[in-house]
């Protein structure tokens, strides 16, 4: 094996190790609040650990609090906490509205990363329909399919 071939092989193995070792980042969204008895706010993952497929069933005029957590692992550092560079948006704001939420009061002493607030949003069900909530953090993002239905009508 000549030197060039050895170099290529070494580089390839190194690159593969980088991937296998988990130089990765991930954004997670969790539900913080309860829906009223006549409405829905249910987040279900139809995917798997490698590829989440999040669906949120939400009723009209019902609000749900969502927290964004982020993890990132590199060779020299790791992070697991509130989403950094947090941003979000909804494709169709007639179906659902996303608003920044203040979650500081929910912070547990000693939890999370000092100096970094918890990050979250409140999603509000609008007119019945489907849309997508896009949540982004530093270097990673996640989509949540949102299905809004009419809240149970009271005659």
């Amino acid at each position: 094996m000549n030197r060039l071939a050895l170099f290529v092989l070494t580089a390839g193995v190194g690159a593969a190790l980088v991937v296998v070792a988990g130089c990765s980042s991930e954004v997670r969204v969790t539900v913080l609040t309860e829906a009223p008895p006549t409405g829905h706010a249910e987040l279900v993952d139809h995917g798997n650990d490698d590829e989440p497929d999040l669906h949120l069933a939400l009723s009209h005029a019902v609000a749900v609090g969502l927290e964004c957590c982020e993890s990132e692992y590199t060779f020299d550092a790791s992070y697991n906490g509130a989403c950094r560079d947090f941003s979000f948006g909804v494709d169709d704001e007639g179906v659902a509205t996303a608003l920044e939420a203040n979650l500081d009061a929910l912070a547990l002493p000693g939890a999370g990363v000092p100096g970094i607030s918890r990050t979250g949003l409140v999603l509000l069900g609008g007119e019945a329909g489907n849309t997508v909530l896009r949540v982004e953090a530093r270097g990673a993002s996640i989509e949540v399919r949102v299905d809004v239905d009419e809240a149970d009508a009271v005659p």
Binding site: R28, T30, E42, D45, P52, L54, C69
Partner: peptide, 18 residues
């Protein structure tokens, strides 16, 4: 209320019940 199985650090779950 359901949370994604891969997305629930303990501190987040505590708040759901809290």
């Amino acid at each position: 209320m359901t949370t994604p199985p891969n997305a629930a650090p303990l501190r987040c779950l505590v708040f759901v019940f809290g």
